[in-house]
Design a protein around this nucleic acid. Structure first.
Length: 506
RNA sequence: GCCCCCAUCGUCUAGUGGCCUAGGACACUGGCUUUUCAUGCCAGCAACGGGAGUUCAAUUCUCCCUGGGGGUACCA
């Protein structure tokens, strides 16, 4: 349809500043970003802030932060600059107005003077008469002079695009040709009464001016595209490649929306992760999130499932993007995270862990303040964890002060008090042995425990479990050698002593 | 209502007319490993929505039905 061959690929992601980046939006960014990186093109970030009523304060900073966390960098846009700026639509009003004037003069757009009440009446009538279009093009169409006069009279005036009476075919790289018959789309608003352009108009002007070659967006935009194509023809613009991606839903088929969080909170359930930031705070790795969403609507055509961002750049092609909507399976994401946690370079894993500690709420202060070396060792001792909160659950006690250990009554009963305080008896013995242990290392601690087991002809668990409960208060901790080394000799002995003091008399 | 898109295990998906007794992954079930919690390993369960065609042969092509989704704003 258009001659874009030979032109450098330029794609964009154009979020509205209404909050954090949505996980579905993240998938849209990812595919756009991959297309750019794959082809050596440019990835542009544009902020679509034309609806002032929906604008949320620091959204832009949040979205940028989410993108950085995911590892996706932009070549042009906020903070990055670029030749096609400004990259905030609210700063491009004069650009829109220029093109608007052209369309007004050519007669492809016109001032419309109807009041909201009049529009509502039109809609009701259309519904009653089962007509397709609810907006009746005025006859005669108001002249430019009439429109401007109405504006001077402080009347609410909008500009509408005169939808041409012809079939429009959208050539979609994913869906194929989609034709919309003439007469299906009414004259739509391109400039609101507050002087701001609507999405459709701003988007078309910006894509042209920013020389966007490929528009990859969610399928919810498919029916907008004929409108955009019609405007492009009116303005003599190039029509970019279009590709509409399948939508992502909850497991129950509903849309993934922020409302899910409010609903869950009301019912006392844990809120589901919806925004990228939710996953970050919940202790997921960006590598896992990226890997997982990359497979929602795309696959390499073989059995591979484990992809880093770099591997995705190598493997990704638009023609492997599917057409079917997908459901977001958190169980599978959890599995991906587990795999990534196990396979990621430890330096990167630790960096991600620190990010989690600072980003997430409910992290005990003593862990936030903990010594880096000790944190590293703690994380290492937790291999096999699924998400970062598991690490806290498993080694959090190490960072508490010795006097703050709370003993889980169930664990005490099962491991220490059972069989006439057998566990306490072991601790009585172990405390002197450990005290005498000069080399406080995993190897020598395990050797000691082994010796005790052999001497008394008992199983490892009979010694390890009482120790575990004594130092952690629960039956959950890393391997016993790791646990005691992490804790250090002094704390270990102090905690065992304290535990022994709590022994119930027989 | 009207317009548009989609349709393989519970979920993400492979499959492009015979290689399919439909493959992989998650989940699930059973077993193994293990000093706790996890992890890991092995095995099993499990799908072509329905109906007409086309063809020697349809999961794969066509049509209809059904189902799901999207759009129908001075939101993007």
């Amino acid at each position: 349809m258009t001659k874009l061959e030979g032109t450098k690929v330029r794609v964009r992601f154009a979020p509205s500043p209404t909050g954090y980046l949505h996980i579905g939006g993240a998938r849209t960014v990812l595919f756009n970003w991959l297309l750019a990186r794959k082809s050596g093109g440019k990835f542009i970030l544009r902020i679509e802030d034309t609806d002032r009523s929906r604008h949320v304060g620091d959204s832009v900073a949040k979205i940028l932060d989410d993108l950085r966390w995911l590892g996706m960098t932009w070549d042009e846009g906020p903070e990055a600059g670029g030749d096609a700026g400004p990259y905030f639509q609210s700063e491009r009003l004069s650009l829109y107005n220029e093109h608007l004037a052209r369309m007004l003069e050519s007669g492809d757009a016109y001032y419309a003077l109807e009041t909201p009440q009049e529009l509502e009446t039109m809609r009701e009538n259309a519904r009653a008469e089962k007509r397709i279009l609810s907006y009746d093009r005025p006859s005669p169409i108001p002249t430019i002079e009439e429109g401007e006069a109405a504006k001077r009279d402080r009347k609410k005036v909008v500009v509408r695009f005169k939808m041409p009476d012809e079939d429009i075919t959208v050539c979609d790289d994913i869906l194929g040709d989609v034709t919309l018959k003439s007469g299906q789309i009414e004259d739509f608003v391109i400039q609101k009464s507050d002087g701001f352009p609507t999405y459709h108009f701003a988007c078309v002007v910006d894509d042209e001016l920013m020389k966007i070659t490929h528009v990859l967006r969610g399928q919810e935009h498919l029916m907008n595209t004929p409108k955009h194509v019609a405007m492009q023809r009116s303005l003599g613009f190039t029509t970019p490649h279009y590709a509409h991606m399948p939508v992502i839903f909850n497991m129950n088929g509903s849309k993934m929306s922020k409302r899910d969080k409010e609903k869950a909170l009301k019912n006392g359930d844990p809120p589901p992760e919806i925004d990228v930031n939710d996953f970050r705070v919940a202790g997921y790795l960006p590598e896992a999130v990226v890997n997982f969403i990359s497979l929602l609507g795309w696959n390499p055509g073989d059995d591979r499932e484990h992809f880093s961002l770099g591997e995705l750049v190598e493997t990704f092609t638009l023609d492997r993007v599917g057409k079917t909507n997908a459901k977001f399976d958190r169980e599978k994401l959890l599995a991906f995270n587990t795999n990534w946690a196990a396979s990621l370079d430890f330096g990167l894993l630790f960096k991600a862990f620190c990010d989690f500690l600072s980003a997430s709420e409910n992290i005990p202060q003593e862990i936030r303040d903990a010594d880096e070396k000790k944190l590293r060792e703690a994380l290492k001792a937790c291999s096999g964890f699924r998400i970062f909160p598991d690490v806290i659950k498993k080694v959090g006690f190490v960072f508490a002060s010795d006097n703050d250990i709370e003993f889980d009554p169930k664990a005490v009963k099962k491991v220490l008090a059972k069989n006439e305080n057998a566990g306490y008896a072991i601790l009585d013995h172990m405390i002197t042995r450990l005290e005498a242990l000069a080399d406080w290392s995993v190897g020598s601690i395990e050797r000691l425990i082994n010796d005790v087991c052999e001497a008394r002809d008992i199983k490892m668990g009979n010694v390890a479990q009482p120790l575990r409960v004594a130092v952690s208060g629960s039956t959950i901790s890393p391997a016993i050698g790791d646990t005691l080394v992490l804790l250090g000799k002094k704390s270990t002995l102090a905690r065992i002593r304290k535990c022994l003091m709590n022994r119930e008399p027989k």
